[in-house]
Design a protein around this nucleic acid. Structure first.
Length: 326
DNA sequence: GGTAGACCTGGACGC
DNA sequence: GCGTCCAGGTCTACC
């Protein structure tokens, strides 16, 4: 028996805009259907995996959540926590207003929330799978990780898989990850990260509560992230933004392309990255959102609104060759 | 502290 | 269709 729930949203919430706001909405197990405007994925809950579908009838209205099976009371709470994190339903309205005041370009369309994963663990692994690869490869890695290791639920016409838990990935052999999920040299790093997420803090494990706590100072958090296996300056800055801290820019080759093509910057890659940091520095704690939505606007000019993008055809949209086309 | 090279996969390109 | 080159961020060794 299916479960139906309603989720309250902030008054300005727009599902299609706020889901299709960061590339992770295109990565398995997430799925956005451009035709129906329904977001779905398999969520891992206390009693096992469940297919979850989220729709919104009108802008600013509540979210209608349909779950493929009956949920225990505790699972309903668990799912609410996961959806709230993923969809940024608890985004502080005052900081959103502050962002729009400092960068009015995005006030009119209300952009400000950035889609993320239901757990920090999934965000960290997704970040690792996006390093040193082209976007189509990141898409494939996430699809394979879910298909090979994620819990599955039966749906009409096949199966849908969730994202594997830290416990499951911690028990996976690196060779399996490499051979079946095609993660390459990231294999051991992913398993090591998963182990750190399963260990208690007293034994050197990751203190997720401390990392998620808005009261935790930025710099010690950045230092803790950069100490993790497979996490360098780019990945640490990206995880910071996924944790809601937007002061630091995760600069990569895509930033350099943007600096050259859109901002008219010249010089070596290192010089352009420095210029990009300087360019967005006046935005202070909103720097990343200002940078990101400018980049996102460039993608949308090329390919139409992000909520019309099909997951299975976006791979080629974000290759260097395609993005460098005039 | 700064730099060079290895890591691995898949897209692009030439034949 | 096949082979080769190259892009991509992190890590380690070395200066």
């Amino acid at each position: 028996m299916a479960t139906r729930m309603k989720l309250k949203t902030p008054g300005d919430y727009l599902l299609r805009r706020d889901v299709c706001s960061y590339g992770y909405f295109l990565l398995a197990p997430n799925h956005w259907d451009p035709r129906s405007g329904v977001f779905s994925r398999v969520c891992t809950l206390g009693d096992g995996p469940a297919l979850v579908e989220v729709a919104q009838e009108k802008a600013g209205g509540e979210l209608a959540v349909k779950v493929g099976r009956a949920l225990l009371k505790e699972e309903k709470k668990e799912l609410t926590v996961q959806l709230t994190r993923m969809l940024r339903l608890d985004e502080d309205a005052s900081t959103l207003r502050e962002f729009h005041a400092s960068d009015p370009r995005f006030a009119g369309i209300g952009r400000g929330r950035l889609f993320r994963s239901p757990t920090l663990f999934e965000d960290v692994i997704k970040t690792v799978t996006s390093c040193n690869v082209t976007w189509p490869n990141t898409v494939n890695m996430n699809r394979r990780i879910c298909e090979v290791l994620g819990d599955a639920v039966e749906v009409k016409g096949g199966k849908r898989h969730g994202f594997p838990s830290a416990t499951k990935l911690a028990r996976t052999r690196p060779a399996t990850l490499r051979a079946r999920c095609r993660v390459g040299y990231r294999d051991a790093r992913i398993v090591e990260l998963a182990k750190l997420f399963t260990l208690p803090k007293s034994r050197g494990g990751i203190d997720v509560g401390w990392m998620e706590d808005p009261a935790t100072p930025d710099e010690p958090l950045y230092e803790a992230l950069i100490d993790l296996p497979g996490i360098g300056p780019y990945a640490a800055a990206n995880i910071l933004q996924l944790l809601g801290r937007y002061h630091r820019l995760p600069c990569d080759t895509e930033s350099v392309r943007h600096g050259k093509a859109v901002l008219g910057m010249t010089g070596s890659s290192a010089q352009i990255m420095k210029k990009i940091h300087e360019h967005f520095a006046p935005m202070g704690r909103h720097a990343f959102r200002s940078y990101w939505f400018e980049l996102w606007e460039f993608y949308e000019k090329k390919h139409g609104p992000s909520w019309t993008w099909e997951r299975d055809s976006t791979g080629k949209m974000f290759t260097a060759a395609e993005l460098n086309k005039k």
